[in-house]
Design a protein around this nucleic acid. Sequence first.
DNA 1: GTACGTGCAAATGATTTGCGTTAAG
DNA 2: CTTAACGCAAATCATTTGCACGTAC
Lengths: 117, 117
Amino acid sequence: MAIEEFLEDNLNHPTADEIYNAVKTKLPRITKATVYKNLKVLLSEGLIKEVNVKGVTRFEAKIDPHHHIICKNCAKIIDFASQELTDYALQMIRNQKDFKIQSTETIFYGICKNCES
Amino acid sequence: MAIEEFLEDNLNHPTADEIYNAVKTKLPRITKATVYKNLKVLLSEGLIKEVNVKGVTRFEAKIDPHHHIICKNCAKIIDFASQELTDYALQMIRNQKDFKIQSTETIFYGICKNCES
DNA sequence: GTACGTGCAAATGATTTGCGTTAAG
DNA sequence: CTTAACGCAAATCATTTGCACGTAC
């Protein structure tokens, strides 16, 4: 189980399948079911977070709140930390009465260096 | 096909399944495959947008750029229009060099009135 | 022995694909 | 006739579930 955490720190925003393949090199007998079960546990413990892009679910080790930049072409994700932006967004929404807001995250869509040829 | 668009305007952020059920009352012989095919066409034409929450894909008629407030409990989504927030976010990211940013969207997570009992 | 995490295989659910049919120009 | 959209059934893909087993306390 600690194996998952280890992996989370290394790769950037892998899918469940990518995690499975990576862990398999260390634990050849592991199955996807086990990976999913552990991801679920880690999620419920708040140790990791899931991000959804174009219907693809990816996971990341949860550090502090941050934002994401996503390539519209290859779906690559990079983090963008900015407490300032978080604060500003929360400021904007402060008098929303139908929801009790708990957190916020901004997503930027664009094309990464690799994909603009 | 125009039927889909019609629906998009009415319901708020329905899933493919909800769209299917709604359209079926008008066109009883329609199938999910047709709904998916049309959703794909509308997406590629830029007439609708998809939003992903907790692995659930929802669709909305594309109007102008806006943000979303999502209930962590029931996954209900409501829109939050704020050009000001959009502008601020783009301002924050302006000297990002690895990505050519095209758009941005902020998501707020919270609990809706209905779900806080 | 009791409980928990595992591997495995089967089940589920969403989305996609292939294909024969149909309606419109 | 030709094309594009459709309905249908089967296929695919991600994720989940049930269950029997082995290890640790």
